[in-house]
Design a binder for these strands. Structure first.
Lengths: 218, 218
DNA sequence: ATTATTTATTAGTCAAGGCTAATTTTTTAT
DNA sequence: ATAAAAAATTAGCCTTGACTAATAAATAAT
């Protein structure tokens, strides 16, 4: 698998995640920032390698093998993101580009060792679950609070920014890991959000705060 | 700079290190495991970019700018090697291939952070000095004991294998960091070596031991 | 000094991955 | 049901970095 193939497969995998049965050439082109003509070519190749089922003019469907490969790449990407944030003190929103390069390093041993070194993390800094070496994802995905809709409920399970200042702020306003929350209102204009904490306390916060709070939805 | 260009430049840099004024096309081809025809092509390109001075049929000479670039790649390579050994518990002789890939990740910030995280190491696990961010190499190179010639002298400055077992062995035989040594004899057949420690104690060791002892030559 | 040999370069090809332009197929709208 | 629009594919070209075969230049040997 070349780097380009890995990237296409990952894109196709992500595009199929949202329950979509088949992914169109244009979808892939948009995601990959390439032209549809280039995509057609690559789909033919990935089809021949049986990473996808490719029926001309009808989009693609990822195969089990393709999914396995894509999940390996996703695993590597997310492990590197954890490394960058936990060990090298990158901010959670600074890591994507670099991880996009690091994920293509070919060394199963490296990933195994990295995983152990990071203490087998289950989530990346954005709250997305990290597949295990077999491509299995056990953990339920977390979502940033700002991405939730009105009336949705869940539980605060983690924060992205663990700076002292941020934790202090959370403590002050009465938000804590484990708190059950419900979205009461969202302001379209600035992305600020109002939530109900533990069915008793109303809490209004800016988008800047909300993006850093991870929710396990229920 | 592409990955290929970086690799060629690094090869040319290494080949010019041994005081050679100019490096031949064949030299580069051998080092890069490519054919001379491919090298000619790349030399023309690197010449146009003024990374090297290229006179057809007369080999190349690296420019200051080329040296600067090559040293950046060397720096990245060696920092990653330290990471792999110090943090991920790779053995010093297992890291080269992976570092060869990692060195091409493009992110100055990453390298800066990695350097800090590793505590600004001055040497890689093979004893080679790590250039600073400006390409300056202050430290004198170290050499593995097995690479020294008869009658050469120096001082033990580090070990590559820092396992308890190895350190215990060194202690037992009376070798220690700081000891002054002189090579008395080398056995061609198995690479074993006999040294004089602190001008008084003869010590015979296998190649397996010698490769793990780093000497600052004098 | 001329030939032989070695070394290096050019010419032409290939695969990967991108592109544009032209064409074909599918979908949508009348 | 057919025409128009949208989507996808093919054809043909480009660049990078390899290769082989053919040629040219430099060096070595007689």
């Amino acid at each position: 698998m070349t780097t380009a193939e890995e990237n296409y497969l990952k894109a196709i995998y992500h595009l199929s995640e949202d329950g979509k049965k088949s992914v169109s050439t244009n979808d892939v082109a948009r995601e990959m920032k390439t032209k549809p003509a280039s995509v057609s070519d690559m789909l033919r190749k990935l089809g021949e390698k049986e990473m996808i089922e490719y029926r001309k003019y009808y989009g693609v469907h990822i195969t089990e093998e393709g999914k396995r490969m894509a999940l390996q790449t996703v695993r590597k990407h997310r492990l590197w993101e954890v490394f960058l944030v936990d060990k090298l003190n990158f901010a959670w929103d600074e890591v994507h580009e670099v991880a996009e390069e690091l994920e293509h390093i070919q060394s199963p041993l490296l990933i195994q060792r990295l995983d152990a070194y990071l203490n087998y993390p289950k989530f990346d800094p954005h709250g997305d679950p990290i597949p295990d070496e077999f491509g299995d994802v056990k953990a339920k995905p977390r979502v940033a609070l700002n991405e939730m809709e009105i009336d949705q409920m869940g539980q605060i399970v983690a924060v992205k920014d663990s700076s002292a200042a941020f934790l202090k702020y959370l403590d002050k306003v009465g938000a804590y890991i484990g708190a059950r929350i419900k979205v009461l209102d969202k302001v379209e204009f600035d992305g600020s959000i109002e939530i109900l904490v533990d069915q008793k306390k109303n809490l209004f916060m800016s988008k800047e705060v909300a993006v850093n709070i991870l929710i396990l939805q229920s």
